[in-house]
Design a binder for these strands. Structure first.
Lengths: 120, 120
DNA sequence: GCGATAAATGAACAAATGTTCATATATGGG
DNA sequence: CCCATATATGAACATTTGTTCATTTATCGC
């Protein structure tokens, strides 16, 4: 018997009118990617904990490492990540770098997420 | 010269009082994991587009496949994922399965995310 | 029942992601 | 100046994640 790929649905449409209507109001790729990026950033336990801690008060790498029980190297890498997205900002004081939230707006997302988690 | 690991910060604390204070109000692991899971779910372009489309009207796999230009198999896998998290629900009508949002609350998160993306 | 097709799924594969380890850089104290 | 140490970083590695492909299941029309 001949092997056949499941290509029907990829070329067929059930409700063409609907597909075309929604197609016109779909999120554009750029917005979608930006959205995915910000959500993906919050989709990691370590980063969530870092952001939560920084929402309370500023922290240096060392103390975050101690607070979260994660190597300072790992913390540093994640902070680099968060810095690139301008979610946190560093303030150097001697050898110690104090990190704080750069974008308070992220907390709104956080709160909504918490509501969601607690509500289900 | 002897190789030495960077273990200082992992055992040392700069501001012990602060670490202990925040430690008491830290998110617990379970909540953190739940949060990470929901954000990670939204951290994928395909799933974002599926959820956005379903926020407008219900869709079958076939039409989603056509709308997003993604194989029906990929759509099906993602829907399975979203179903497991109770974000979407299926309604079978003959051979066709119509999916719709199961958790409207997720839209709040969505909106906050959009605000964030557009505001920066 | 049989053939067509919408949807689901397991397995293989590919790509992205996060951690660890070793090392480098920078700064303050002696 | 050294030396200790707070932070940063590159590379290797392991894990997770998402897609594709082949196949299966379920349902409709004949």
């Amino acid at each position: 018997m001949p092997k056949r790929k499941n290509i029907f649905c990829d070329t067929h449409v059930i409700d063409r009118e609907k597909v075309e209507r929604i197609s016109k109001i779909m999120l554009d790729d750029s917005t979608t990617l930006d959205l995915a990026e910000i959500f993906r950033t919050l989709g990691d336990s370590t980063r969530i904990k870092i952001l939560f801690a920084l929402s309370k008060t500023e922290f240096c790498v060392c103390d975050l490492s101690s607070l979260l029980n994660i190597s300072s190297s790992a913390i540093s890498h994640q902070l680099r990540f968060l810095r690139a997205l301008r979610l946190v900002k560093p303030a150097k004081k001697g050898r110690i770098v104090h990190y704080s939230l750069d974008d308070k707006h992220i907390l709104k997302l956080f709160e909504e997420g918490l509501k969601h988690v607690r509500h289900k």
